[in-house]
Write a protein that binds this DNA or RNA. Structure first.
Length: 153
DNA sequence: GCCAACGTTGGC
DNA sequence: GCCAACGTTGGC
């Protein structure tokens, strides 16, 4: 069992969108970074736990808990000429971008970035390291437990 | 394969 | 809107 933090811009896809989504599940489309892709393709397993993080917004922070619902499969948006995620170099025979399905466990209070920074037990989080911009990062079990504790219940 | 230029991310 | 950080591109 592994733990992950996955960033989403709420203007594009928020925790409330996930609450409303069919089966409260979303294909994690739009990742266009190789390391983040590799985490999904090579390291995520069904049942892994996910921190759903809101980025590039007025109140960045953890907005809910989710889990990995599928193994990796091709991201359809890479084939869609009308999508901003279209990739001319990707083909169905040799897809370049893979994703997993993510299902809501529960929406939480917003655990703000400031609060994360103020929590000694969370200083090791990749997302808090200087210069880190990766949209998917591994989380340790210790960090996970600390976050759940801060969220309460 | 190097590396300068350029583009993107994302908090502030 | 700024800008630090870092990934990608492309000429050589």
């Amino acid at each position: 069992m592994a733990y992950w933090l996955m960033k989403s811009e709420p203007s594009e896809f928020s925790i409330d969108d996930l609450v409303k989504a069919k089966n409260q599940t979303v294909p994690w489309f739009g990742v266009r970074n190789y390391l983040a892709r590799n985490y999904m393709r090579d390291h995520m397993r069904v049942g892994d736990d996910v921190l759903f993080y809101h980025s590039s917004c007025p109140e960045p922070g953890i907005a809910g808990l989710a889990r990995v619902l599928s193994t990796a499969y091709p991201d359809e948006t890479q084939f869609d000429k009308k999508s901003k995620y279209f990739d001319a170099k990707a083909t169905r025979e040799t897809p370049r971008w893979m994703l997993v399905d993510v299902q809501l466990m529960r929406k939480s209070r917003l655990l703000s970035l400031a609060e994360l920074r103020d929590t000694p037990a969370l200083q090791t989080m990749v997302i808090l390291q200087r210069g880190n911009r990766l949209s998917i990062t591994p989380v340790t079990s210790t960090e996970w437990k600390s976050v759940v504790k801060l969220l309460g219940k």
